[in-house]
Every structure is written in C-alpha cells, then in structure tokens.
Design a protein around this nucleic acid. Structure first.
Lengths: 162, 162
DNA sequence: TGGAAATATCTGATTAGTCAGATACTGTTT
DNA sequence: AAACAGTATCTGACTAATCAGATATTTCCA
C-alpha cells in the first residue's frame, strides 16, 4: 500500500481504494435488491425488518430504543421516528419500563410477530433465488466481480484484526 | 436452509438471515467509519468521493450523468442533485456533449482532481489505521465477528454464482 | 421521412434521515 | 437530601434521497 498517489487516475485505480469501493458497492446492491423485495412483498422497509429481527431476539418484555440505535447505525432521534412509524403500522408497541421511567420499552405486537415471520420467509426465498438462480442481468456480472474481491478483502481484514 | 420458520425467534436466529444481516451490518459500519473520516478531513461526503473516483476513471472529456447513476445505486434525479452540489463546490463541471444534446457531460475540474487525490490519501491512511491498529472500541468486537461471517458468506456466494 | 418509442435530465412534492437542543428521570456524591 | 452529571427520549429545523411527471432530444421503423 506504499505507492504515492498524485493523480485522479492513480486514486481511482489504487487496489485498496478499488477493493473497498467494490465491497461497499456489493453490499449496497445486495441491500437494495433484498430490501426492495421485502418492501414489495410485505410492505415494510429493510430497516423495519432489521428492527423486527432485533426485537424477535429480545426478551418478551421489550427493549429500550437506545439498544436499537446502537445495534443499527442510526441516531436515537432516527430510532424514535422509525419506531413511531412502526407503532402506527401496528408492528410494535411502547410499554412502560418500571425500572426506568425515562423511556418506555418497545416490543413486538402479535401483528409484528406475524410480519417478521412472513418477511423472513420471503427473505430466505430471495436469498435462494438470487444465489442459486441468476441475478437480474443488469446486476449479475458486477455482483460476481464485487463478491470475489469482497471475499478476498474480507478474509485479509479478518486476518489483520486478530 | 430447509427449516420452516414459524416464530419471531426462529426468524431472528436463522443462520442465513443472521449471516446476511451481519454482512450488511459490517458494510454499513465500514461505510460509516470511512465516510465520516473523509467528510471530516476533506469536507466531502463519501458519495461525492465515489463520484470523483468514477470520474477519475472516465475519459477526460467527461461522462453522462446516467452512467454515474447506474454505477452507484442512485436514481437519475438523485445524481442531478448530487452533481448540482458538487458543481457548486467547484469539484466538477458540466460541459456540452456534442454527440447527444439531451444532456451534458460531467468532468472533474482542477479542484476536483486535487480533492480526489487528497481524499484517496486520507482514505488509504484510514484503511491502514482501522485494520492494522485497533478499531474504535465500540466497533471492534462487532466488526471482527461481522467480517468473519461476511468472509464465509461471500466465499460461498461466489461459488454459487459461477 | 414522419411519428412513435426510448432516453437523458430536471423538478415539485414527499419521505426519512441528521444534528442540536429540550425535557424528564436516574445515580452519585457530598 | 440537594445538587449535578449522566442517560433516554423527543422535537424543530434542515438535508438529501425518492418517486413521478415534464421537457428535450435521439433512435428506430413503417
């Protein structure tokens, strides 16, 4: 990684810059495709699905919103508004937290439980579809390239993190 | 992947659901950390940096905005506005496209050239820093876990894509 | 060649996030 | 137990994306 960069072309062609760009590109495309599919089939966004999964993992009594904020890359203000929408949609409810009255706990409603099961099935089916059958043509080649580079890059990074 | 999902807990604990969640989580944290660093050091967003790199790779005469839209996951409307801001910041300019008068070409200005070189250096230094020295503590453990799973998942996916 | 369909970009209205500051409670520390 | 720092959430103002519809130009084919 020692080569000095002095022109835009050198910046754009640098191996590490490229690899990280590909990694993020692949992840974004994946998130876009899978998120779009859930949205169309189930009427909830990808982020709502992630929150439903987090709550599914949580204790039945619920979870403070701060925990959700830390689990996702989202500010506490963003979580407040996301939970507002999910509550309006009947997927979650806020209940009193006897141990700390500064905020309430969020937990799944029955409708939320049903929705996360439905969305997870759709999600799994799409993972199967995209990775066994061909991707949409306009994504396929790009994706395969990205994932090959991503795999190498991630493996190297894991090594260095130990 | 044949297990039937019937409860929120099963959905949340499913191996594929988890792996994809981790993969996207790792990429989002990475994008957030590296993007934030470029933003603070160079005053441009991560998305602007990506566009500068794309233009650095392009022909000197410039590139139509539709190509940028397709390279990133961004609508054409979004690209129009992103380029508006970058043009206002003096990083790029729109020039006439003699071959197709429906739209103009976008190309780097001298300031844009300088900025992409500066940002790429910062970016490389941060990649070095994050993956050789410890990550910020609040991200480190999560990140290492994510990347291990990501690596496995990506390798499998590449295999299936052939 | 004339016109329909496709393409490139732009724009108004809307949505969902950020940030920073307000409010309400908790926990410590004298 | 009074004060003060810390934590959890909410909110107003703002930003940057989306979508859908408008406009200009190009391409294709009958």
């Amino acid at each position: 990684m020692g080569e000095e960069i002095t022109t835009a072309k050198e910046a754009a062609d640098n191996a590490s810059v490229l690899a990280f760009g590909r990694l993020l590109g692949a992840a974004n495309r994946l998130e876009y495709l899978l998120g779009r599919a859930i949205e169309e089939a189930c009427g909830i966004t990808h982020l709502m699905f992630e929150v439903l999964l987090i709550l599914g993992r949580a204790d039945d009594s619920g979870m403070p919103m701060g925990d959700i904020s830390r689990a996702q890359v989202l500010t506490t203000g963003g979580v407040t508004r996301l939970i507002d929408r999910m509550e309006a949609a009947g997927l979650v409810e806020r209940v009193a937290n006897p141990g700390d009255r500064r905020g309430r706990l969020v937990r799944l409603t029955a409708a939320g439980e049903a929705k996360v099961v439905e969305a997870a099935r759709v999600h799994l089916a799409n993972i199967e579809r995209y990775f066994v059958e061909p991707l949409p043509v306009e994504h396929r080649r790009q994706f395969a390239d990205d994932l090959r580079i991503l795999s190498r890059s991630a493996r190297d990074s894991v090594g260095r993190l130990r």
